[in-house]
Design a protein around this nucleic acid. Structure first.
Length: 255
DNA sequence: ATGGCATTGCAACAATGA
């Protein structure tokens, strides 16, 4: 049984100052897929985790303090692939792939579109190109776990206020339709598969005490190719962890 | 429609985020 956690930490240095290290030691994930490190590797001291047997694999953005993903793993991968190898995306530090046997784990931070039309267009293009990228990858690596911050709430059950947010980036019809298309291409949303009716969120606005009122969105996912569905033991959302405006999401896999 | 709050870079507020 392998517990794999995905966590958008909103700045790993700030999260470490809020006790992220002790939390990792307590949770002991086999793998921790982090998004929004907002840091370069040389700005963070992970010695305590390395002493516990974790290796770290980074994809930082060129721009300091921006975006960035990181995987901590207690097992040595057979192969490491950084980025999508397509123009325009890899400078933003959004994707790491690690191969373990037949399974490839991809940690992705899908762009936000909340700052305006330019970035919303970029997000939609990223979504299309990412799905094409995955379709191509599956020809050689059919068994995938794609986890991370998708920056989209899929259905009405995944957001506290579906009506007032129907024109808000992150819950736009075309974004929700992309998740439909993504799933129809052969992926399973682990949390929703295990808990079809459960209302749980993974992100809350910092503003207006949204978290204490549980006014949230479910933006973070473990998507598995259907070939791995039977290996899902359970999946969940750890809304008690408060190092970030997101909370961790996890899946236990029989691998 | 607007603003609200937090992290980071860089040393003042600007950029970014959902």
């Amino acid at each position: 049984m392998q517990k794999i956690i995905s966590y958008n930490v909103n700045g790993i240095r700030a999260a470490l100052n809020k006790g992220l290290l002790d939390w990792i030691k307590k949770m002991k994930p086999a793998m921790l897929c982090i998004q929004e490190t907002k840091a370069q590797p040389d700005q963070v001291d992970l010695t305590p985790l390395k002493k516990l047997g974790y290796d770290d694999y980074w994809h930082s953005a060129e721009k300091k303090g921006y975006s960035g993903v990181l995987i901590l793993t207690d097992q040595e991968p057979d192969k490491v692939v950084i980025g999508m190898n397509t123009s325009g995306y890899d400078s933003e530090g959004r994707l790491i792939r690690l191969d373990f046997g037949d399974i490839s784990v991809l940690n992705v931070y899908i762009p936000s579109g909340t700052t305006g039309d330019v970035r919303q267009d970029f997000k939609m293009k990223f979504l299309d190109d990412f799905l094409s990228f995955l379709t191509g990858l599956r020809k050689e690596r059919p068994d995938l776990l794609v986890c991370g911050d998708f920056n989209i709430a899929h259905r009405e059950i995944d957001i506290h206020n579906p009506v007032s947010n129907k024109n808000t980036s992150g819950f736009l019809p075309e974004e929700r339709a992309w998740i439909d298309k993504f799933l129809e291409s052969g992926f399973v949303d682990s949390f929703r598969h295990m808990h079809p009716e459960t209302v749980k969120y993974s992100w809350w606005s910092f503003r207006s005490n949204a978290r204490s009122k549980n006014l949230g969105w479910r933006l973070d996912y473990h998507m598995l190719t259907e070939s791995l569905t039977a290996r899902i033991k359970d999946a969940g959302i750890m809304n008690e962890a408060t190092h970030s405006d997101h909370c961790p999401v996890w899946v236990d896999l029989d691998i």
